[in-house]
Computed example of a mutant assay.
Amino acid sequence: MFLFLLAALSSCSPRLSYFTQDLYERNRWSDSELKKIQFYLSDDVYLRRKLGDNSSEIVEGKVRVVNGQKIEEIYIPRSTPGVFMFSPKANRFAVAFENGSDSRFLMFGPNPKAGERFVLLAKDWERSTGTVTYDGKEYEVNYGAAFAGLMVDLRRIDRQDRNSRTAEGRKVD
């Protein structure tokens, strides 16, 4: 009984795989098709930015005081679902992981060092941090976020791409 229940539950859970350049090229999805795909984040991403003394405009991020400095933090946990917003150029995806402003997105693209997986892109990586734009503001991310990638449920995508039906049979009148 327990094995049956375990098998039933596991068949319902998503089978997440990394979204890769090869997968993208094989399927040749348009932007409208990409908007129908549920993406997931592979690893935790922490966004941090220092606030000036006069900054008081914090909407949904958490503010902490570290060594006398105000720091705004936004945490996006692994497995957070995201949606494709737009593609500013070839092989670049803007993906949003929260509701609200359409400017709350992160950029992803294929990385040859990560097996052509679509991973978080930053303006630049310097030592242990990168700089990303989120909600129109610049944030720092730690180096570990460089390999945070997009994941998809391949079984669900396969079901969407397949047009099938079951014949009910036909009887003599």
Rank of each mutant, 00 (worst) to 15 (best):
V172I: 13
E116R: 11
D153P: 12
G52D: 07
V152A: 02
F108W: 03
I58G: 00
G82F: 00
E140K: 15
Y139H: 08
E73L: 06
K123Y: 09
Y134Q: 02
N67K: 15
N67M: 10
T20N: 06
R165D: 12
T20S: 14
G149P: 10
D22N: 13
D53P: 06
D44Y: 04
V65L: 12
A96M: 09
F86W: 04
E126D: 11
A167R: 12
V83C: 04
E72G: 09
S101F: 02
R162Y: 02
R155C: 01
S101W: 03
I74H: 00
G130Q: 04
S103I: 00
K36V: 05
L47V: 02
T20A: 04
A8K: 12
V172R: 14
E60K: 12
A167D: 13
L3N: 13
S32M: 11
I76N: 01
E25Q: 15
A90K: 15
E126F: 13
F2N: 14
D158G: 01
E168H: 08
G82D: 03
R15Q: 14
L120F: 09
Y40E: 01
D102F: 11
S13A: 15
L23K: 09
V45E: 01
A122E: 04
S55W: 08
L41D: 02
G68H: 11
A94E: 08
P14T: 06
G115H: 03
G149V: 10
S128C: 04
V65K: 14
R159F: 05
S55F: 11
F4H: 12
G136E: 03
I76C: 03
V59M: 07
S10F: 14
R92A: 09
R170Y: 11
R162C: 05
Y139K: 08
S11T: 11
W29G: 07
I157Y: 05
E98P: 00
R117P: 03
P88A: 00
V172N: 12
L16T: 03
I76A: 03
A148Q: 06
E126I: 14
S32R: 15
V63D: 02
R104E: 06
S56L: 09
F86L: 06
A90P: 07
V65G: 03
R78C: 00
S128G: 04
D44M: 00
L150E: 06
F147N: 09
D158F: 07
R156D: 14
A114F: 07
